[in-house]
Write a protein that binds this DNA or RNA. Structure first.
Length: 435
DNA sequence: AGACATGATTATCG
DNA sequence: CGATAATCATGTCT
């Protein structure tokens, strides 16, 4: 009769050993067997894991497939993703927003300004030729110089673009590759779309840092090129003889007021065909007049001869043009058109007379006349603009320092009659012209 | 090579 | 903002 319980007991014991289970624990209450059971449990799992690696690929695949097809899989997967996102991603997620790198922006701006990264501008020597043509012919000298520069620049540009494209392509390829990989892996481990996105942005950042290096070296190359070619800004090409003559002609025929207007400068520049890059032609004319004024004033004696020469020339061409010139005071031929006509111009008559009387020194009538004419021309212009008149101006312009007032400045209509005139003549002129 | 000429740049001023 | 004066840097002449 005792057998049964014992048997059952033993049975239970065997059962316990073979299949450790909860009922057993509950039955046993406290006991050393609890810890041992867990250890065995883990060992069992490890054993299973170890055997998995021994399984064949097919087997593993099948298992994976089974796992994927499990009805609870999506839900579990989502939970895992969520947990992962909360733990890992949120930590690094804070520094996600990338502020636009100022250095990168600088580089971009520079490349854009240099025409490297901007829209295509015709490319190389073609652009140079076009520029030369646009600037009005005869710019061959400087365009030849610049075509080299432009050619090199476009070379840089081309390299830059191909490299950039290469990087772009590599970046895209790599991105797709990684994305595919992640997508594939996302079937077996929790990878959320957000994480993929993050990976992609990391890849892009890496590649853009490479791009920045490219941009930087491109910038450096451009800078070097610049310094070698254009940036020799002070590199000066003398104007050709014709240009200087035209400018001098204008200068000496407007000696009373050698300040050409913007339009006049433009026209002079066009006439002189001065087109050197870096500055506008009219700015070059401004430079020329600035230099000329200051240098003339500094050493009038030195320029005397030149002044006489140009005065004579204007006189000659004036007489050649004879009697009926138009009023047009072309900068290139300030004399030919205006002077002859102005001699018998009603308004300038008095002026001329008074000048003659004052100027009764060494110079010949024709010369003086021509010169005075242009003075008058200038003056009339000035007068009409300001309504004022500065005396002494007309009297002494051409060949003597008197054209420059005591302050060392050119006496012009903007500084009216306060200047003491050397003679009485202008007084009458004043009243006359002011009418 | 050095002096001078000359176009361009810069600082300053009104 | 334009003119001037000083200066720079290169071109040209001797």
């Amino acid at each position: 009769m005792d057998e049964q319980p014992r048997l059952m007991h033993s049975h239970a014991g065997v059962g316990m050993a073979g299949h450790p289970g909860l009922p057993q624990h509950m039955q046993e209450g406290t006991g050393g067997t609890d810890g041992d059971g867990r250890k065995q449990d883990i060992g069992d799992i490890l054993q299973q894991i170890m055997t998995i690696t021994d399984q064949s690929l097919d087997e593993a695949q099948a298992r994976k497939h089974a796992l994927n097809c499990h009805r609870m899989k999506p839900a579990l997967f989502n939970v895992l993703c969520e947990i992962k996102e909360k733990t890992v991603l949120s930590i690094r997620g804070a520094q996600e927003e990338e502020p636009p790198d100022p250095q990168l922006m600088r580089l971009d701006n520079m490349l854009l300004a240099e025409g490297v990264s901007g829209p295509e501008k015709g490319g190389g020597s073609a652009a140079a030729a076009a520029a030369a043509a646009a600037s009005g012919g005869a710019g061959a000298d400087n365009s030849a110089e610049h075509s080299d520069y432009r050619a090199k620049l476009s070379q840089i540009r081309q390299i830059y673009h191909t490299e950039l494209e290469k990087y772009e392509q590599a970046c895209n390829e790599f991105t797709t590759h990684v994305m595919n990989l992640l997508r594939e892996q996302s079937r077996t481990r929790p990878i959320s779309p957000k994480e993929i996105e993050r990976m992609v942005s990391i890849i892009h950042r890496k590649f853009s840092s490479i791009q920045m290096q490219l941009k930087q070296s491109t910038c450096e190359a451009v800078m070097i090129l610049r310094s070698r070619f254009l940036d020799a800004r002070r590199k000066r090409r003398n104007f050709n003889k014709q240009a200087t003559e035209i400018l001098n002609e204008y200068f000496y025929s407007h000696l009373s007021n050698p300040y050409p207007s913007e339009e006049a400068k433009e026209e002079l520049a066009k006439k002189c065909s001065i087109t050197v890059a870096q500055v506008t032609p009219s700015f070059q004319v401004s430079n020329w007049f600035g230099n000329k004024r200051i240098r003339y004033k500094k050493n009038i004696g030195k320029f005397q001869e030149e002044a006489n020469m140009y005065a004579a020339r204007t006189a000659v061409s004036a007489t050649n043009a004879s009697a009926h010139g138009s009023q047009a005071n072309s900068p290139s031929t300030p004399n030919s058109a205006g002077s002859a006509g102005s001699f018998n111009m009603s308004n300038s008559g008095d002026l001329f007379m008074s000048v003659q009387s004052m100027n009764g020194d060494s110079y010949q009538g024709a010369q003086v006349g021509a010169n005075v004419q242009s003075q008058v021309d200038t003056l009339r212009h000035v007068i009409s603009q300001t309504g004022g008149y500065s005396d002494g101006l007309t009297a002494s312009q051409m060949y003597s320092p008197q054209g420059i007032n005591a302050n060392g400045g050119w006496q012009d209509a903007t500084t009216p009659s306060s200047v003491t005139s050397p003679t009485e003549g202008p007084g009458s002129v004043h009243s006359d012209t002011s009418n």
